[in-house]
Amino acid sequence: MDTIEIHPLSADRLGDWLHYFDHVAFADNPDWQDCYCHFLHADTASKPWSQWTGEENRRAVIPLIEQREMNGMLAYAGGQVIGWVHAGPSRCLPAMKDKPGADEAGVAAIGCFVVAKRWRGQGVARQLLRAACDQLKAQGLHTVQAYPRRETKSEADAHFGPLDLYLDEGFSIWHDAPGERLLTVRRAL
């Protein structure tokens, strides 16, 4: 197995990130290939998410990455990106602003995981989560929360991260509202 390296997303790694989302990230899930992880940032008040095109999403994330408004960690193997976790201060994930606790100072959020099909089930998401938590703590944040689905029926359903992963990594269920698809799990950093 190749050695996996984890690096924070930065403007210097923008080309790697774009290549991953252009060609690898959703190779087995073409319905989502237009997302570019912009879903958590898109202004859906002025334009419904269903009307955003892949090219619009791609163009929109570039300045977010360059200005450090879109944050996360990239997993590499053999010099190529094989996985991504969208993670940063809660204020940087506008789609999560209404989630319980997201507006608290010092709270970070984990958004999406996108691991290349070939690399799933090999601990890449766990390594990304651990690295993201370390990075968020280094930024002075004190709590991280995430929003796994209560139930998943496919790998794509687990794009917010599987609940078992969070529980294994010391998170606990913090908010569980009956009838909601997403739970809120939390952990101190």
Results as ranks from 00 to 15, higher is better:
129 L>S: 10
49 W>K: 05
32 W>G: 09
18 L>P: 12
50 S>E: 13
111 G>D: 11
125 A>M: 06
26 F>M: 12
2 D>G: 10
112 C>H: 11
75 A>D: 06
109 A>V: 07
188 A>S: 14
147 Y>H: 12
22 D>M: 00
168 D>P: 06
102 A>C: 09
189 L>P: 02
41 H>T: 08
53 T>R: 00
4 I>C: 13
29 N>D: 12
92 C>F: 02
136 L>Q: 12
120 R>T: 09
81 V>K: 04
134 D>K: 09
34 D>I: 05
157 D>E: 10
124 V>L: 01
91 R>N: 09
63 P>M: 04
66 E>K: 10
164 D>Y: 01
40 L>M: 15
61 V>A: 05
120 R>C: 07
115 V>E: 13
139 Q>P: 00
23 H>C: 12
28 D>P: 07
34 D>W: 09
187 R>T: 12
101 G>S: 02
155 E>W: 07
34 D>T: 09
171 F>Y: 08
2 D>E: 15
83 G>V: 04
69 E>I: 03
107 V>P: 03
19 H>T: 15
125 A>K: 03
165 L>R: 09
156 A>T: 13
25 A>N: 06
170 G>D: 14
128 L>K: 03
134 D>F: 03
155 E>R: 11
113 F>G: 14
134 D>E: 15
4 I>V: 15
1 M>S: 15
126 R>C: 15
101 G>I: 07
176 D>Y: 01
50 S>P: 01
57 N>M: 02
25 A>C: 01
36 Y>P: 06
36 Y>E: 01
52 W>F: 14
86 H>T: 14
186 R>S: 08
158 A>P: 06
46 S>F: 00
131 A>G: 13
136 L>A: 05
152 T>Y: 02
23 H>T: 14
73 M>G: 06
184 T>R: 00
112 C>L: 13
38 H>Y: 10
121 G>T: 05
138 A>T: 09
115 V>M: 01
83 G>L: 04
89 P>H: 07
187 R>Q: 12
175 H>W: 10
28 D>I: 02
102 A>I: 10
40 L>G: 15
14 L>P: 10
21 F>I: 02
90 S>Q: 02
24 V>A: 08
163 L>W: 03
31 D>T: 14
111 G>A: 07
175 H>G: 07
58 R>Q: 02
42 A>E: 04
42 A>S: 11
16 D>Y: 09
14 L>N: 02
26 F>W: 13
130 R>L: 08
10 S>I: 11
158 A>D: 12
142 H>V: 10
54 G>F: 04
60 A>R: 04
41 H>N: 13
108 A>R: 03
106 G>K: 00
125 A>G: 14
162 P>V: 15
185 V>D: 08
170 G>M: 05
146 A>D: 11
